[in-house]
Amino acid sequence: MVLQNTIKTAAQTLNQNSQVDVGSQKGVDVQIPRFDKNLEEFYSICDQIELHLKTSIKCLTQQESSNRYLLLPVAPTRSESLSINDNTLTYPQFLATASAQVSYTKEIHDTLVAAAQNISPSD
C-alpha cells in the first residue's frame, strides 16, 4: 500500500510538472502529496522489515545453539512439583544453567580484555 502511494504520488508529480513544462497548465492547481514524505515512509517500513528479519535470524540461531548445547529439553511449566522425566530440565534448572553460562562467558570476556590491555598498554 505504501509503495503504491509512493509510486502514485511520483506519477502525479511527474505528470503535473510535464503539463507545466508543456504549457498546458500555468501552475500548481491541485496540491499533490509530497513524494519525499511517501518515500521516507516507504524506507521506514523497509527498515522495520529488515530489523524484524534480523531478529528472526537471531532467534533461529539462538534456538539452534540451544538445541546443540543444551541437550535436555526444558519443561514448559515453571513448577517443580510436577513429576517430570529425569531427562528433562525444570524451568528453574534451565534458568540456573543459563545464568551459569552467562557468568562463564562474562568471565572469559573480562579475561580476554585484561589480556589485551596487558599486551598493549594504552598511553
Rank of each mutant, 00 (worst) to 15 (best):
V2G: 02
L3S: 13
L3Q: 12
Q4S: 11
N5L: 12
N5R: 10
T6A: 12
I7Y: 01
K8Q: 08
T9L: 04
A10T: 05
T13D: 09
N15R: 10
N15D: 09
N15L: 08
Q16H: 11
Q16C: 10
N17F: 11
S18G: 01
S18P: 00
V20Y: 01
V20R: 11
D21Q: 11
D21T: 07
D21P: 04
V22K: 11
G23M: 07
S24G: 09
S24N: 14
Q25D: 02
Q25M: 14
Q25F: 02
G27F: 11
V28S: 07
V30M: 08
V30L: 10
Q31K: 14
I32W: 00
I32V: 13
P33G: 07
R34M: 05
R34T: 03
D36Y: 02
D36C: 02
K37D: 13
K37Q: 07
K37Y: 03
K37T: 06
N38I: 00
L39H: 06
L39M: 13
L39V: 01
L39F: 13
S44L: 03
S44A: 05
D47T: 06
Q48T: 09
Q48I: 04
I49L: 11
I49V: 14
I49A: 04
L51P: 00
H52T: 09
L53I: 09
T55P: 02
T55D: 07
S56R: 10
I57S: 10
K58L: 12
C59K: 15
C59E: 15
C59S: 12
L60F: 04
T61H: 10
T61A: 09
Q63R: 14
E64C: 11
S65W: 10
S66H: 13
S66D: 13
N67T: 12
R68Q: 13
Y69W: 14
L70V: 15
L71G: 02
L71K: 14
L71C: 00
L71E: 10
P73V: 06
V74F: 03
V74Y: 01
V74Q: 05
A75M: 05
T77N: 05
S79P: 03
S79T: 12
S79Y: 01
S79D: 05
E80M: 04
E80Y: 00
S81N: 10
S81R: 10
S83H: 09
I84H: 06
N85L: 07
N85W: 04
N87Y: 09
T88E: 06
L89K: 05
T90H: 00
P92N: 04
P92R: 00
P92Q: 03
Q93T: 00
Q93P: 01
Q93W: 08
Q93N: 04
L95V: 08
A96H: 04
T97F: 08
T97P: 00
A98T: 06
S99D: 12
A100L: 07
A100T: 14
A100P: 02
Q101T: 06
Y104A: 11
Y104M: 09
Y104F: 08
Y104K: 12
Y104S: 15
K106L: 15
K106Q: 15
K106T: 14
H109V: 15
H109Y: 15
D110E: 15
T111N: 15
V113A: 05
V113E: 07
Q117G: 01
Q117M: 05
N118W: 01
N118L: 13
I119R: 06
S122G: 01
D123N: 10
